[in-house]
């Protein structure tokens, strides 16, 4: 299995509800964009609607890679490596 990238994805809030799981492992995704595609393929349209508005990633999707926002890396082009942990959550501002 040398060379296969396995990434752990933790889903929160609406993403968890749409996927029906809180955690999953995705293999073979080279970057964040392909990871999201793999997640949609795995969990279906409800998750796609929560992640994307048409082709565009929704503004309410926050993605951390190993604790760091991918916005401050290379966004959707951020590369993944074996053992990475990705957290996907929406911002909440109520008080």
């Amino acid at each position: 299995m040398v060379g296969v990238v396995a990434v752990t994805v933790k889903l929160f809030a609406n993403f968890r509800e749409a996927a029906g799981v809180d955690k999953t492992v995705v293999e073979g995704a080279a970057d964040i964009a392909s990871l999201l595609k793999a997640l949609v393929a795995k969990f279906g349209d409800d998750l796609r609607r929560n992640l994307f508005d048409g082709e565009k990633l929704r503004d309410t999707v926050n993605i951390l890679l190993n604790g760091k926002s991918v916005e401050l890396h290379e966004g959707l082009n951020t590369k993944l490596k074996d053992g990475d942990v990705v957290a996907i959550f929406p911002p909440v501002s109520g008080g």
Binding site: R58, D59, T60, N62, L64, G67, K68, S69, E71, L72, P90, P91, V92, S93, G94, G95
Partner: peptide
């Protein structure tokens, strides 16, 4: 880390519902 390390900028108004 700070809050901006978690979320760089606020989502557009209306994108996240209020309570």
């Amino acid at each position: 880390p700070c809050y901006r390390c978690l979320i760089k900028e606020a989502p557009p108004p209306g994108a996240v519902p209020t309570c």
